[in-house]
Design a protein around this nucleic acid. Structure first.
Lengths: 90, 90
DNA sequence: TCAGATTTGTTCGTATGTATT
DNA sequence: CAATACATACGAACAAATCTG
């Protein structure tokens, strides 16, 4: 992610990197920084969409990306939770 | 998949199984039956959507599912092709 | 038990961009 | 250039699971 993203937590719609990857990267950084603790829920799709100014489906794709990175576990009707044992940084 | 799906190749919108999973199952069956040969393209998203009466994104999700099952390989601008060495049936 | 709010899951529609032929 | 096809992203709607009152 860009320096701007690291600093502000905002996304760059003009970046070659897809928004959902940018968002997944931002959340992964927060998880690895400890801002989002294990077994605690991450913000809901709706909240993420609002916060970052993207569509809910884009936030969903970011969550799917994080599931594939094994950083979160999602439970329908409850939310997505930070994984207890995330793999080492890629 | 249901017996009806096996027999007709049609999908059941009222099934508890998501449409994109049903469609992926139908296509997987076709691949394993040899109706879709290795290195041959499967029908396009638009064609699948038309043929089965689903949205293109649903056909897209079926294709994504098949990619995760390592049954097809998708090449941008060309199409999705039956994998040469698919894993054994799950 | 029930109603409502919250959250994720699925589906459809549409638009724009990019790559290949 | 045009046609085809995949990638991304927006909006909208409803279903299903969960939780709370």
């Amino acid at each position: 992610m860009s320096e701007a993203e690291k600093a502000s937590g905002q996304l760059d719609p003009h970046s070659a990197t897809p928004l959902y990857i940018q968002l997944a990267n931002v959340i992964e950084a927060a998880i690895r920084a400890g801002s989002l603790a294990p077994d605690r829920p991450i913000p809901s799709e709706h909240a993420l969409a609002d916060e970052y100014g993207v569509a809910r489906l884009t936030a969903r794709r970011a969550a799917q990306e994080l599931r594939e990175r094994q950083l979160i576990v999602t439970v329908r009707g409850k939310g997505s939770f930070v994984a207890k044992n995330p793999p080492a940084q890629a």
